[in-house]
C-alpha cells in the first residue's frame, strides 16, 4: 500500500520531475560551470577560472552601469507601484458604486502586452508631437525629451510601469476584502479615527499581500527587459542609460556570443536576488500577518 502510493505519487509528478532536471537543475549546474569558461557558443569551452568574475567586477563599466540602472528602476519603481496599487484598492474597497467598472479600468492596462504598451508610450513621449509634451506646454510647464533623454529615460520607464499597477491592485483588493469587519468595529469602539483604523487595522491585516507584492515586484523589476529593449531599439540607449542588467546579459549572450561571461552575469544576478529576498524575509517576515491555514 505504502509503496504503491509512493509509486503513483512519482508517476503523477513525473512531468515536472523530468522538466526539473532537464530545464532547471541540469542547466543550473551547467551554467555555473560555463561561468568559469570562455565559451562563445561555438567550439570548445576553455576553463578560465574566476577570470570572468574578475573582469566583471574590475574592468567592466557596463556591468556597473547596468546594475545601477536596475537598482534605480527598482528602488523608485517598486515602492511607487506598491503605493499606487494599494491606493487604487483602498479606494475601490470603500463600497463605491460602479466598482466593477472602475476595477476594469484600472486593471486593463496591466493586460496589455509589454511590447504594445512600450510602443504606445514611445508615441506618448515623442518629443515633437507626443501628447505628454503637448499637455506640459499647454500648462506652460517645461517639456522633456523623455525616452530620448539620459536623465529622463528611467523615470519615463517607471511612469510606464505605473500604468500597469492595477495588476497588484487586484491582489490587494482580495486582501482588503478578507479583513474581518469586527476588527474595524472594535477599533471604532476604542475611538479610532479613519487614519488610525487605516494604519493600525487595514495595513497590518493586509501585510501578507503587501509582502507578496513587494517580493514579486522586486523580482520582476530586477528582470526588466522588454520595455527597455523596445524603447531603445535594442541598444540600451541613450548612452547606456536604459541598459538594464538582464538586457546587458542578453546582449552578451546572444549578440556578442560571450556565453561564459553572460553565465557569470546570470549567477551574480541570482545571488543578488537571493540576498534581497532573504533580507526581506528577515526584515519583514516576522511582522507579516498570516491567516491561520489548516
Amino acid at each position: 500500500m505504502f509503496k504503491s502510493k509512493t509509486f503513483s505519487f512519482y508517476m503523477f509528478i513525473l512531468p515536472w520531475l523530468i522538466g526539473f532536471f532537464i530545464f532547471t537543475a541540469g542547466p543550473m549546474i551547467y551554467s555555473l560551470y560555463m561561468s568559469f569558461t570562455d565559451y562563445s557558443g561555438l567550439g570548445a569551452a576553455n576553463w578560465v577560472g574566476i577570470e570572468n568574475y574578475q573582469k566583471i567586477f574590475t574592468e567592466d563599466p557596463l556591468f556597473w552601469q547596468s546594475l545601477w540602472n536596475t537598482f534605480f528602476y527598482t528602488i523608485f519603481g517598486v515602492p511607487l507601484g506598491l503605493v499606487v496599487g494599494y491606493l487604487l484598492a483602498v479606494l475601490l474597497n470603500a463600497k463605491v458604486k460602479f466598482m466593477g467598472a472602475f476595477r476594469t479600468i484600472f486593471y486593463l492596462p496591466s493586460l496589455v502586452p509589454t511590447v504594445a504598451s512600450s510602443l504606445l508610450w514611445i508615441l506618448i513621449f515623442q518629443p515633437d508631437f507626443g501628447i505628454a509634451n503637448s499637455i506640459l506646454s499647454f500648462f506652460h510647464l517645461p517639456t522633456s525629451n523623455w525616452l530620448l533623454s539620459e536623465e529622463m529615460v528611467k523615470p519615463s520607464l517607471i511612469i510606464m510601469s505605473l500604468w500597469g499597477a492595477g495588476g497588484g491592485m487586484v491582489i490587494y483588493l482580495a486582501g482588503l476584502q478578507s479583513v474581518p469587519a469586527t476588527l474595524y468595529e472594535a477599533a471604532e469602539l476604542d475611538g479610532a479615527g479613519k487614519l488610525r483604523k487605516f494604519w493600525h487595522v487595514t495595513v497590518p491585516m493586509t501585510s501578507n499581500v503587501i509582502f507578496f507584492n513587494l517580493i514579486m515586484g522586486l523580482i520582476g523589476a530586477f528582470q526588466i527587459f522588454t520595455q527597455a529593449y523596445v524603447v531603445s531599439n535594442g541598444n540600451g540607449g541613450p548612452n547606456y542609460k536604459s541598459l538594464f542588467y538582464v538586457f546587458y546579459l542578453y546582449q552578451d549572450a546572444f549578440k556578442f556570443f560571450k556565453m561564459g561571461y553572460a553565465s557569470a552575469l546570470a549567477w551574480i544576478l541570482f545571488i543578488i536576488i537571493l540576498i534581497f529576498t532573504l533580507i526581506q524575509f528577515k526584515v519583514f517576515g516576522k511582522k507579516v500577518y498570516y491567516e491561520y491555514d489548516e
Binding site: F2, K5, T6, F7, S8, F9, Y10, I13, W16, L17, F20, F23, T24, G26, P27, M28, Y30, S31, M34, I219, F222, Q223, V246, L249, A253, M259, A262, S263, A266, W267, L269, F270, I273, L274, T277
Partner: peptide, 26 residues
C-alpha cells in the same frame, strides 16, 4: 502522500524564485 513529497514541494516553490536568466543560456 508519497515518500519525499514535502521535500519535492519545497523544491518546486524554490524554483519559482529562480530568475530564468540563470538557466536561459544552457
Amino acid at each position: 502522500k508519497g515518500k519525499g513529497r514535502d521535500a519535492w514541494f519545497v523544491l518546486l516553490l524554490a524554483t519559482m524564485m529562480l530568475p530564468p536568466q540563470v538557466t536561459m543560456i544552457p
